[in-house]
């Protein structure tokens, strides 16, 4: 050790010292290290690889008659597939002009007007709306009605009345053939 220390240990000194620098540097490295170590413990709760692998579903549409609805499971959630009647399509289009809480045209919500495909989960707090069977209540707008807190959806799956803030979500899907879709 030939170099003399610039500041003698314990000597009174104004402003920053090497010791302050070391303290701050150590604290910062320690904090970053802790954050890096904690991240795996947090991220382990996110969907695992096998859960993500199950994220697409294929559906054959050929058995569905006009006016019928079916429910399929995608990512553990119900997806409503409704083959709409001409009347329902017309109603959804005229409703484009109504006062919508979450404005969206029917044409933006469907790829083929006959097939309405939406996630069957109420956008309020996640209940499953009624209206898939002809015997169930479909609400004031002919679509679906959520029994939990009274949200009404129209024939395009748009929210019209009640506490839900958004329209029923449209999942990503593609028509693999004319009668087959792949969701997700």
């Amino acid at each position: 050790m030939t170099d003399a220390p610039t500041v003698a240990a314990g000597a009174p000194h104004e402003g920053e010292t090497r010791r302050d620098f070391l303290l701050i540097a150590t604290s910062v490295v320690g904090a970053v290290g802790t954050a890096l170590a904690v991240w795996p413990l947090i991220d382990q709760m996110n969907p695992a690889a096998d859960v993500l692998a199950l994220s697409s579903t294929e559906v054959d549409l050929s058995p569905i008659e006009v006016g019928q609805s079916i429910t399929v499971v995608w990512r553990g959630k119900p997806v409503f597939i409704r083959r709409r009647t001409a009347k329902e399509i017309a109603r959804a289009k005229t409703d484009d002009a109504s006062d919508l809480p979450d404005p969206q045209a029917d044409s933006e919500r469907v790829q083929k007007p006959e097939w309405l495909i939406v996630v069957g989960v109420c956008t309020h707090l996640g209940c499953i709306p009624l209206g898939q069977r002809a015997t169930e209540p479909r609400g004031d707008f002919g679509g679906w009605f959520c029994p939990c807190h009274g949200s009404h959806y129209d024939t395009s799956g748009r929210i019209r009345k009640g506490p839900a803030p958004e329209n029923l979500a449209v999942p990503e899907y593609v028509f693999v053939t004319d009668t087959k879709i792949k969701i997700g």
């Binding site: 709760m45 996110n46 969907p47 695992a48 859960v51 994220s55 990512r75 553990g76 959630k77």
Partner: peptide, 23 residues
């Protein structure tokens, strides 16, 4: 999910999936 932006990722994180399930 009511919280903007961070809501959906939080819910997925709580669930460990895309709905309430085994995880």
């Amino acid at each position: 999910s009511a919280f903007p932006l961070i809501g959906e990722p939080i819910v997925t994180w709580l669930w460990g999936g895309f709905s309430v399930d085994n995880p």
